[in-house]
């Protein structure tokens, strides 16, 4: 599926601020599932954007505005082609998770991190899924994925990043990154390497509440998770929507948790009471042949 994405973030500071410095992670990654066809970032006031690929393979755009300003808008526009993922054909057993080479390669995704730490209750929830599915990695991962969907109900604006997953579990509600963090923590608690994914989702649900005409939606950035399956690779699942990650998911990047792939972070000098407006517009494009795609690039 070919998608145009327009990520926009606007700050209104209410007073003059200066010396703003930022890092943006909004660019879709190119991998086996998707190909980035075009991308550009513009800011207002205008600034020089310097881009690089970080440790996790995510493109980062850095920019700053030193002069006093009262308003800052960042727009990232991307065109991306997503492909369907082949179905998993093997299903390794839990022993494979303990192979030294596998552990060594994935140890970063097995550790506790600030947003994906766990207590006994959370680990017990994860273990209960394995008790049901047996010591088989794909089934267990799917079990955890389903369990997360059942444990939480979706409530926009209920949490902010900084709430522990334990607390999210206690409350039983959250937003997409809470789902993703909970799934990541549950996987890791039973020894399945798991990572947090930031991205976009082309969805039927529109924030405006209006009917979607099918080709254009206004959404927010999204989050899901990936689990490492020995001998296979990463299995991507979206627990918020209780579905496997597919053609409508556009990945920006991954990391141990939210902090490694937060869409925008930065500093500025001035009063704290800024209002922030974020939107993601996604448009489905007509199918194009790959030759045409090459030309467009």
């Amino acid at each position: 599926m070919r998608l145009d994405i327009r990520y926009r973030c606007a700050f209104e500071y209410g007073a003059l601020v200066h010396e703003s410095q930022n890092e943006l992670r909004a660019c879709p990654v190119s991998d086996t599932r998707q190909t980035l066809l075009g991308y550009r970032v513009t800011t207002s006031p205008a600034s020089r954007v310097f881009s690089f690929e970080d440790y996790w393979g995510t493109r980062v755009d850095t920019f700053g505005v030193r002069e006093p300003h009262i308003y800052l808008e960042v727009v990232a526009e991307a065109t991306v082609e997503t492909k369907s993922t082949p179905l998993l054909t093997t299903s390794p057993m839990f022993e494979a998770l303990r192979g030294p080479a596998f552990v060594e390669e994935h140890w970063e995704y097995l550790e506790r991190t600030p947003h994906a730490d766990w207590n006994g209750k959370l680990a017990a929830e994860a273990q209960s899924q394995i008790d049901l599915t047996g010591p088989e990695v794909v089934s267990a991962t799917l079990g955890i994925h389903r369990r997360v969907g059942a444990l939480l109900s979706y409530r926009p604006g209920t949490t902010y990043v900084g709430v522990d997953v334990d607390e999210v579990l206690e409350r039983g509600e959250g937003v997409c990154q809470d789902y993703a963090h909970l799934a990541v923590a549950m996987c890791r608690s039973v020894g399945i390497p798991a990572r947090y994914v930031s991205g976009y989702l082309f969805t039927d649900r529109d924030d405006t509440g209006e009917d979607v005409d099918g080709d254009e939606v206004v959404v927010q950035t999204h989050a899901w998770f990936e689990a490492a399956i020995p001998g296979v690779g990463w299995l991507a699942l979206d627990p918020t929507n209780r579905q496997a990650v597919g053609l409508r998911h556009v990945k920006i990047g991954h990391g141990r948790d939210y902090d490694d792939v937060s869409p925008l972070r930065g500093t500025y000098s001035g009063p704290r009471n800024a209002t922030l407006e974020v939107s993601v517009e996604m448009r489905r494009l007509a199918a194009v042949t790959s030759a045409q795609a090459q030309q467009q690039q």
């Binding site: 690089f52 690929e53 970080d54 440790y55 996790w56 060594e104 140890w107 970063e108 550790e111 490694d260």
Partner: peptide, 15 residues
Amino acid sequence: WLLSSSDGFRREAFG
């Protein structure tokens, strides 16, 4: 893993 688990390892300084 020994390197990336070190307190002094800075992923942010990659590149």
